[in-house]
Computed example of a mutant assay.
Amino acid sequence: MSADVWLPIPPEEIEGLPEGPRYLFWDGGEDGEQAFPGDPAQCVVYVVPYMKRWPVKVRPLELLTGVRVIQTLTAGVDDITARLSSIVPGVQLCNARGVHETSTAELALTLTLAALRGVPGFVRAQQQERWQSALHPSLADKNVLVVGYGAIGAAIEDRLTPFEVARVTRIARSPRTTARGVVHPITDVLSLLPDADVVILSTPLTQETHGLVDAEFLARMKDGALLVNVSRGPVVDTEALLAELAKGRITAALDVTDPEPLPPGHPLWQAPGVLISPHVGGPSSAFLPRAERLLVDQLTRFVNQEPLRNVILTTEANGR
Protein backbone atom coordinates (compact mmCIF):
# COMPACT_ATOMS: atom_id res chain seq x y z
CA MET A 1 0.00 0.00 0.00
CA SER A 2 1.37 3.42 -0.94
CA ALA A 3 1.71 6.29 1.51
CA ASP A 4 0.11 9.24 -0.23
CA VAL A 5 0.52 12.93 0.47
CA TRP A 6 -2.23 15.19 -0.87
CA LEU A 7 -0.95 18.62 -1.85
CA PRO A 8 -2.99 21.65 -3.02
CA ILE A 9 0.06 22.80 -5.00
CA PRO A 10 1.22 20.63 -7.93
CA PRO A 11 4.13 18.61 -6.50
CA GLU A 12 6.28 19.18 -9.58
CA GLU A 13 6.23 22.89 -8.72
CA ILE A 14 7.70 22.35 -5.24
CA GLU A 15 11.47 21.95 -5.14
CA GLY A 16 13.03 19.76 -2.47
CA LEU A 17 10.20 17.39 -1.58
CA PRO A 18 11.70 14.34 0.13
CA GLU A 19 11.59 10.97 -1.57
CA GLY A 20 9.37 8.25 -0.21
CA PRO A 21 5.69 9.24 -0.31
CA ARG A 22 3.60 9.43 -3.45
CA TYR A 23 2.65 13.06 -3.97
CA LEU A 24 -0.82 13.71 -5.36
CA PHE A 25 -2.37 17.04 -6.29
CA TRP A 26 -5.81 17.93 -4.90
CA ASP A 27 -7.21 21.41 -4.34
CA GLY A 28 -10.91 20.65 -4.68
CA GLY A 29 -11.16 22.12 -8.17
CA GLU A 30 -13.01 25.20 -9.31
CA ASP A 31 -16.42 23.97 -8.16
CA GLY A 32 -15.20 22.04 -5.11
CA GLU A 33 -16.25 18.72 -6.63
CA GLN A 34 -12.89 17.64 -8.06
CA ALA A 35 -12.45 13.87 -7.81
CA PHE A 36 -10.03 12.68 -5.17
CA PRO A 37 -6.58 11.93 -6.62
CA GLY A 38 -6.32 8.54 -4.98
CA ASP A 39 -7.79 6.35 -2.28
CA PRO A 40 -8.38 8.63 0.76
CA ALA A 41 -7.57 5.68 3.04
CA GLN A 42 -3.99 5.72 1.72
CA CYS A 43 -3.45 9.42 2.43
CA VAL A 44 -1.05 9.88 5.35
CA VAL A 45 -0.60 13.66 5.07
CA TYR A 46 -3.48 15.90 4.02
CA VAL A 47 -2.51 19.48 3.17
CA VAL A 48 -5.75 21.44 3.29
CA PRO A 49 -6.57 23.42 0.11
CA TYR A 50 -5.99 27.13 0.49
CA MET A 51 -8.60 29.81 -0.21
CA LYS A 52 -11.35 27.25 -0.69
CA ARG A 53 -14.80 27.15 0.88
CA TRP A 54 -15.21 25.31 4.16
CA PRO A 55 -17.15 22.36 2.65
CA VAL A 56 -14.26 21.73 0.24
CA LYS A 57 -11.65 21.73 2.99
CA VAL A 58 -13.48 19.24 5.19
CA ARG A 59 -14.92 17.05 2.41
CA PRO A 60 -12.29 14.27 2.64
CA LEU A 61 -11.96 14.18 6.43
CA GLU A 62 -14.25 11.25 7.20
CA LEU A 63 -12.58 9.16 4.47
CA LEU A 64 -8.99 9.77 5.62
CA THR A 65 -8.85 6.69 7.80
CA GLY A 66 -5.05 6.37 7.61
CA VAL A 67 -4.11 10.02 7.88
CA ARG A 68 -1.42 10.94 10.40
CA VAL A 69 -0.93 14.66 9.71
CA ILE A 70 -3.30 17.41 8.64
CA GLN A 71 -1.42 20.53 7.59
CA THR A 72 -3.29 23.77 6.99
CA LEU A 73 -1.87 26.62 4.94
CA THR A 74 -3.60 29.13 7.18
CA ALA A 75 -2.61 30.47 10.58
CA GLY A 76 -6.07 29.70 11.93
CA VAL A 77 -7.29 26.11 12.09
CA ASP A 78 -10.91 26.76 13.06
CA ASP A 79 -12.16 25.29 9.76
CA ILE A 80 -10.71 21.92 10.76
CA THR A 81 -11.32 22.03 14.51
CA ALA A 82 -15.01 22.56 13.72
CA ARG A 83 -14.99 18.99 12.35
CA LEU A 84 -12.66 17.22 14.79
CA SER A 85 -15.25 14.49 15.32
CA SER A 86 -14.71 13.46 11.68
CA ILE A 87 -10.98 12.86 12.15
CA VAL A 88 -9.48 9.57 13.30
CA PRO A 89 -7.52 9.60 16.58
CA GLY A 90 -3.79 10.25 16.72
CA VAL A 91 -3.67 12.85 13.94
CA GLN A 92 -1.39 15.85 14.36
CA LEU A 93 -3.04 19.08 13.24
CA CYS A 94 -0.47 21.70 12.21
CA ASN A 95 -0.97 25.31 11.19
CA ALA A 96 1.00 27.58 8.87
CA ARG A 97 2.88 29.66 11.40
CA GLY A 98 5.69 31.38 9.51
CA VAL A 99 3.77 31.62 6.23
CA HIS A 100 1.37 34.51 6.71
CA GLU A 101 3.13 36.87 9.09
CA THR A 102 4.66 39.02 6.35
CA SER A 103 1.56 39.34 4.19
CA THR A 104 -0.99 39.74 6.98
CA ALA A 105 1.11 42.28 8.86
CA GLU A 106 1.51 44.27 5.65
CA LEU A 107 -2.24 44.36 5.18
CA ALA A 108 -2.87 45.30 8.82
CA LEU A 109 -0.58 48.29 8.35
CA THR A 110 -2.12 49.10 4.95
CA LEU A 111 -5.66 49.10 6.34
CA THR A 112 -4.60 51.17 9.34
CA LEU A 113 -2.87 53.82 7.23
CA ALA A 114 -5.59 53.87 4.57
CA ALA A 115 -8.37 54.30 7.12
CA LEU A 116 -6.55 56.95 9.14
CA ARG A 117 -5.40 58.99 6.15
CA GLY A 118 -8.77 58.91 4.39
CA VAL A 119 -7.74 56.90 1.33
CA PRO A 120 -11.26 55.51 0.67
CA GLY A 121 -12.53 59.09 0.42
CA PHE A 122 -9.73 59.95 -2.00
CA VAL A 123 -10.72 57.03 -4.23
CA ARG A 124 -14.37 58.11 -4.27
CA ALA A 125 -13.35 61.69 -5.03
CA GLN A 126 -11.08 60.54 -7.86
CA GLN A 127 -13.92 58.59 -9.43
CA GLN A 128 -15.95 61.81 -9.38
CA GLU A 129 -12.98 63.92 -10.58
CA ARG A 130 -13.08 66.04 -7.42
CA TRP A 131 -10.00 67.51 -5.76
CA GLN A 132 -10.88 66.97 -2.10
CA SER A 133 -8.19 67.97 0.36
CA ALA A 134 -8.59 67.62 4.12
CA LEU A 135 -6.69 67.10 7.37
CA HIS A 136 -6.53 63.46 8.46
CA PRO A 137 -5.05 61.66 11.46
CA SER A 138 -1.53 60.23 11.25
CA LEU A 139 -0.38 56.90 12.62
CA ALA A 140 2.53 58.73 14.26
CA ASP A 141 2.07 59.42 17.98
CA LYS A 142 -0.85 56.99 18.29
CA ASN A 143 -1.28 54.34 20.97
CA VAL A 144 -1.85 50.97 19.28
CA LEU A 145 -3.35 47.94 21.01
CA VAL A 146 -2.55 44.60 19.33
CA VAL A 147 -5.03 41.94 20.45
CA GLY A 148 -3.48 38.57 19.63
CA TYR A 149 0.27 38.80 20.07
CA GLY A 150 1.47 35.65 18.38
CA ALA A 151 3.73 35.52 15.35
CA ILE A 152 1.42 37.74 13.30
CA GLY A 153 0.95 40.21 16.15
CA ALA A 154 4.72 40.49 16.57
CA ALA A 155 5.12 41.01 12.81
CA ILE A 156 2.55 43.81 12.99
CA GLU A 157 4.58 45.50 15.71
CA ASP A 158 7.70 45.16 13.52
CA ARG A 159 5.94 47.26 10.90
CA LEU A 160 4.41 49.75 13.32
CA THR A 161 7.73 50.72 14.90
CA PRO A 162 9.14 52.81 12.00
CA PHE A 163 5.94 54.86 11.91
CA GLU A 164 6.75 56.56 15.21
CA VAL A 165 3.76 55.27 17.13
CA ALA A 166 3.68 56.45 20.71
CA ARG A 167 3.19 53.00 22.22
CA VAL A 168 2.28 49.44 21.29
CA THR A 169 0.35 47.51 23.94
CA ARG A 170 0.30 43.74 23.46
CA ILE A 171 -2.41 41.25 24.46
CA ALA A 172 -2.33 37.46 24.20
CA ARG A 173 -4.07 34.50 25.78
CA SER A 174 -1.28 34.12 28.33
CA PRO A 175 0.82 36.92 29.86
CA ARG A 176 4.56 36.95 29.32
CA THR A 177 7.47 39.29 28.86
CA THR A 178 9.27 39.66 25.54
CA ALA A 179 12.35 41.61 24.50
CA ARG A 180 9.96 44.42 23.55
CA GLY A 181 8.08 44.43 26.82
CA VAL A 182 5.06 43.04 28.63
CA VAL A 183 2.36 41.00 26.91
CA HIS A 184 -0.86 41.40 28.86
CA PRO A 185 -3.43 38.60 29.31
CA ILE A 186 -6.65 38.73 27.33
CA THR A 187 -8.51 39.32 30.60
CA ASP A 188 -6.98 42.82 30.71
CA VAL A 189 -8.37 43.90 27.35
CA LEU A 190 -11.34 45.95 28.61
CA SER A 191 -9.17 47.96 30.97
CA LEU A 192 -6.63 48.72 28.22
CA LEU A 193 -9.09 49.76 25.50
CA PRO A 194 -9.82 53.35 26.63
CA ASP A 195 -6.22 54.43 25.99
CA ALA A 196 -5.93 52.94 22.49
CA ASP A 197 -6.23 55.07 19.34
CA VAL A 198 -5.96 51.99 17.11
CA VAL A 199 -7.04 48.45 18.05
CA ILE A 200 -5.69 45.71 15.75
CA LEU A 201 -7.20 42.23 16.03
CA SER A 202 -4.85 39.40 15.06
CA THR A 203 -6.10 36.72 17.43
CA PRO A 204 -7.09 33.20 16.38
CA LEU A 205 -10.76 32.27 16.51
CA THR A 206 -11.37 30.15 19.60
CA GLN A 207 -14.20 29.69 22.07
CA GLU A 208 -12.55 32.41 24.14
CA THR A 209 -12.30 34.94 21.30
CA HIS A 210 -15.60 34.24 19.52
CA GLY A 211 -17.61 37.44 19.95
CA LEU A 212 -14.80 39.03 21.97
CA VAL A 213 -15.47 42.40 20.34
CA ASP A 214 -18.99 42.87 21.62
CA ALA A 215 -21.01 45.93 22.65
CA GLU A 216 -19.07 46.30 25.90
CA PHE A 217 -15.71 46.03 24.15
CA LEU A 218 -16.69 48.63 21.56
CA ALA A 219 -18.14 50.98 24.19
CA ARG A 220 -14.77 50.94 25.99
CA MET A 221 -12.96 52.17 22.87
CA LYS A 222 -12.16 55.87 22.93
CA ASP A 223 -13.96 58.36 20.73
CA GLY A 224 -12.37 58.47 17.29
CA ALA A 225 -10.58 55.12 17.68
CA LEU A 226 -10.03 52.77 14.75
CA LEU A 227 -10.75 49.03 14.90
CA VAL A 228 -8.74 46.89 12.45
CA ASN A 229 -9.62 43.20 12.06
CA VAL A 230 -7.21 40.86 10.25
CA SER A 231 -8.09 37.82 12.37
CA ARG A 232 -11.47 36.14 11.84
CA GLY A 233 -14.90 37.68 11.29
CA PRO A 234 -16.69 36.06 14.26
CA VAL A 235 -14.21 37.65 16.68
CA VAL A 236 -16.38 40.75 16.19
CA ASP A 237 -20.10 40.93 16.94
CA THR A 238 -21.32 42.42 13.66
CA GLU A 239 -24.56 43.84 15.03
CA ALA A 240 -22.73 45.54 17.89
CA LEU A 241 -20.19 46.99 15.44
CA LEU A 242 -22.93 48.28 13.13
CA ALA A 243 -24.60 50.01 16.06
CA GLU A 244 -21.34 51.72 17.08
CA LEU A 245 -20.46 52.72 13.50
CA ALA A 246 -23.89 54.28 13.07
CA LYS A 247 -23.09 56.64 15.94
CA GLY A 248 -19.96 57.79 14.10
CA ARG A 249 -17.96 57.45 17.30
CA ILE A 250 -15.41 54.93 15.97
CA THR A 251 -14.27 53.71 12.56
CA ALA A 252 -13.28 50.25 11.32
CA ALA A 253 -11.10 48.55 8.70
CA LEU A 254 -12.06 44.93 8.17
CA ASP A 255 -10.31 42.23 6.17
CA VAL A 256 -12.69 39.64 7.61
CA THR A 257 -16.40 39.81 8.32
CA ASP A 258 -19.23 37.80 9.81
CA PRO A 259 -20.89 36.60 7.61
CA GLU A 260 -18.20 35.91 5.04
CA PRO A 261 -18.20 36.39 2.14
CA LEU A 262 -20.20 39.53 2.90
CA PRO A 263 -23.36 39.22 0.78
CA PRO A 264 -24.71 42.01 -1.43
CA GLY A 265 -27.07 44.26 0.50
CA HIS A 266 -25.49 43.60 3.89
CA PRO A 267 -25.50 46.80 5.97
CA LEU A 268 -21.74 46.61 6.57
CA TRP A 269 -21.12 47.54 2.92
CA GLN A 270 -22.68 50.96 3.42
CA ALA A 271 -21.92 51.53 7.10
CA PRO A 272 -20.28 54.90 7.79
CA GLY A 273 -16.57 54.91 8.55
CA VAL A 274 -15.79 51.35 7.47
CA LEU A 275 -13.18 50.09 4.99
CA ILE A 276 -13.58 46.48 3.82
CA SER A 277 -11.10 44.21 2.04
CA PRO A 278 -12.19 40.68 0.97
CA HIS A 279 -10.09 38.50 3.32
CA VAL A 280 -6.81 39.08 1.51
CA GLY A 281 -4.47 39.20 4.50
CA GLY A 282 -2.72 35.99 3.48
CA PRO A 283 -2.91 35.71 -0.31
CA SER A 284 -0.14 37.80 -1.79
CA SER A 285 3.08 37.12 -3.67
CA ALA A 286 4.67 36.44 -0.26
CA PHE A 287 2.46 33.38 0.30
CA LEU A 288 3.63 30.73 -2.16
CA PRO A 289 7.40 30.67 -1.46
CA ARG A 290 6.81 30.57 2.29
CA ALA A 291 4.13 27.89 1.97
CA GLU A 292 6.41 25.74 -0.15
CA ARG A 293 9.29 26.09 2.32
CA LEU A 294 6.99 25.04 5.15
CA LEU A 295 5.74 21.99 3.24
CA VAL A 296 9.24 20.83 2.30
CA ASP A 297 10.39 21.19 5.90
CA GLN A 298 7.33 19.46 7.39
CA LEU A 299 7.38 16.59 4.92
CA THR A 300 11.12 16.09 5.41
CA ARG A 301 10.49 15.89 9.14
CA PHE A 302 7.62 13.47 8.58
CA VAL A 303 9.65 11.16 6.32
CA ASN A 304 12.57 11.20 8.77
CA GLN A 305 10.23 10.65 11.73
CA GLU A 306 11.32 13.91 13.34
CA PRO A 307 9.05 16.20 15.41
CA LEU A 308 6.81 18.37 13.27
CA ARG A 309 6.53 22.13 13.55
CA ASN A 310 3.41 24.09 14.42
CA VAL A 311 1.49 21.22 16.03
CA ILE A 312 -1.73 22.71 17.40
CA LEU A 313 -3.24 19.50 18.74
CA THR A 314 -3.32 15.71 18.38
CA THR A 315 -6.76 14.20 17.95
CA GLU A 316 -8.02 11.75 20.53
CA ALA A 317 -10.49 8.91 20.30
CA ASN A 318 -13.40 11.28 20.96
CA GLY A 319 -12.29 13.59 18.14
CA ARG A 320 -10.87 16.29 20.41
Rank of each mutant, 00 (worst) to 15 (best):
Thr203Gly: 10
Val147Glu: 04
Gly66Arg: 09
Val230Phe: 04
Pro194His: 05
Gly282Glu: 03
Ile312Ser: 03
Lys52Ile: 11
Lys247Val: 12
Ala253Asp: 03
Glu30Tyr: 13
Arg249Thr: 02
Val256Gly: 00
Leu275Met: 10
His184Thr: 07
Thr72Phe: 05
Gly16His: 02
Thr251Arg: 13
Ser285Leu: 13
Lys247Ser: 15
Asn143Val: 15
Ala253Leu: 06
Tyr50Gly: 02
Glu216Ala: 06
Ile250Leu: 08
Leu190Ser: 10
Gln298Gly: 06
Gly233Ala: 07
Val235Asn: 01
Leu111Cys: 07
Tyr50Gln: 09
Arg68Asp: 11
Glu15Thr: 11
Thr65Ala: 12
Ala41Arg: 15
Val123Arg: 12
Thr209Tyr: 01
Ala246Phe: 09
Asp79Thr: 14
Pro272Val: 09
Leu226Pro: 00
Thr314Cys: 11
Val123Leu: 15
Leu295Met: 10
Val228Trp: 01
Thr203Val: 13
Ile276Asp: 02
Pro261Phe: 05
Leu111Gly: 02
Gln270Val: 15
Pro267Tyr: 07
Phe287Lys: 02
Arg97Asp: 12
Asp78Lys: 01
Lys222Leu: 03
Leu254Gly: 01
Leu313Pro: 03
Ile312Cys: 12
Ala82Pro: 03
Ala286His: 11
Leu268Cys: 04
Pro307Phe: 07
Tyr50Asn: 05
Arg68Cys: 08
Val123Lys: 11
Leu245Gln: 01
Leu275Arg: 00
Glu260Asn: 11
Tyr149Leu: 04
Gln298Ile: 06
Val256Ile: 05
Gly38Arg: 11
Trp54Tyr: 14
Ala271Ile: 05
Asp78Gly: 01
Glu244Lys: 01
Glu106Gln: 14
Val5Cys: 08
Thr161Ile: 15
Val228Tyr: 01
Thr110Glu: 13
Leu242Met: 09
Leu145Phe: 07
Glu106Trp: 10
Arg309Lys: 15
Leu116Met: 06
Ala243Cys: 13
Leu145Asn: 04
Asp27Tyr: 04
Arg232Val: 07
Glu260Phe: 10
Asp188Gly: 08
Asp78Gln: 12
Asn229Gly: 03
Ala246Gln: 14
Gly121Ile: 09
Leu245Met: 04
Pro272Leu: 10
Arg232Cys: 03
Leu61Ser: 04
Ala240Glu: 01
Pro18Gly: 06
Val44Leu: 13
Leu299Arg: 02
Tyr23Lys: 09
Val48Lys: 03
Val146Met: 11
Ala243Trp: 00
Ala291Trp: 07
Arg22Ile: 13
Gly29Ala: 12
Ile200Asn: 02
His266Arg: 05
Val58Gln: 14
Val303Ser: 06
Leu288Glu: 13
Arg232Tyr: 03
Ile312His: 06
Ala225Asn: 03
Gly273Tyr: 00
Gly148Tyr: 05
Val274Gln: 01
Val168Lys: 01
Val228Lys: 01
Ser202Arg: 02
Glu15Tyr: 05
Arg301Pro: 04
Leu192Ala: 05
Ser174Glu: 14
Val182Tyr: 12
Leu107Gly: 00
Ile70His: 04
Gln305Phe: 11
Ser85Asp: 15
Ala140Tyr: 12
Ala108Cys: 12
Pro137Asn: 08
Thr206Leu: 11
Ala151Ile: 05
Leu226Glu: 00
Ile9Cys: 05
Leu7Gly: 04
Gly38Asp: 11
Leu294Asn: 00
